[in-house]
Simulated scan of single mutants.
Amino acid sequence: MNINTSQGKDEVATTTLAERLRHQLEQLITTAELRPGTRLDEQEIAQRFQVSRTPVREALRLLAAQHLVTLRGRQGAVVRQIDTHALIDMFVVMAELEGLCARLACRRMTPETLKKIQLLHDRLRQTSETGDIDLFFEVNREFHEAIYDASCNAFLAEQTRVLRNRVAAYRRRMSLMPGRVHHTLAQHQAIIDAFRSQDADLSYKAMHDHVNLAGDDLMDFLAWNSTPS
Rank of each mutant, 00 (worst) to 15 (best):
R72V: 07
L163W: 01
H144F: 02
L62G: 00
E26Y: 11
T110Q: 05
H144G: 03
A13D: 15
K116T: 14
H182F: 09
T227N: 14
D217G: 07
A46Y: 07
T110P: 01
H182A: 14
D217L: 05
I147S: 00
L119K: 10
I117K: 00
E58G: 02
V93T: 08
E58R: 14
L135W: 12
Q198P: 01
M94T: 10
T160C: 03
R57K: 15
D216E: 13
L21G: 01
F136S: 05
L97F: 07
A206R: 08
M207V: 03
R141Y: 10
R72C: 14
R107T: 14
D201T: 09
G37W: 05
V79R: 03
C101H: 03
D193I: 02
A86P: 03
I3K: 07
H67I: 06
Y170L: 05
M90I: 10
D149I: 15
L163T: 00
T38R: 14
L63V: 03
F49D: 02
D89P: 02
V79M: 05
G76S: 08
N225D: 13
S128E: 06
W224E: 11
D201M: 07
V181S: 07
T5C: 09
P178C: 02
E33C: 08
G99H: 05
T14F: 07
D217S: 07
I117T: 00
T127G: 08
S6D: 13
Q187E: 15
S151C: 06
F143S: 00
R166Y: 02
N140S: 12
A105Q: 00
Q159Y: 13
D199K: 07
I117M: 00
E98W: 05
T184I: 13
A146L: 04
V69K: 03
N212I: 12
R61G: 06
V78E: 13
R171W: 13
H188Q: 11
E112H: 05
A223H: 15
I45N: 01
A77I: 04
I29C: 00
T5F: 15
D201K: 05
R48F: 09
G37Q: 01
Q24Y: 10
F91P: 01
R20E: 13
H188Y: 06
I82E: 01
R35W: 13
T130V: 03
A32Y: 06
R61Q: 11
H121K: 08
A146M: 01
E96Y: 11
S226G: 09
S6E: 15
R180P: 10
E142M: 06
S197W: 04
A95L: 05
R141M: 09
E145K: 12
R22N: 10
A64I: 07
Y148W: 15
E19I: 12
T110W: 05
H144R: 12
L28N: 04
V211A: 07
I29T: 00
K115D: 13
E58C: 08
K115W: 09
M219K: 15
D122M: 08
V79Q: 04
S128G: 10
P228A: 01
L25R: 01
D89L: 09
T54Y: 04
L97R: 08
M1D: 15
E33L: 13
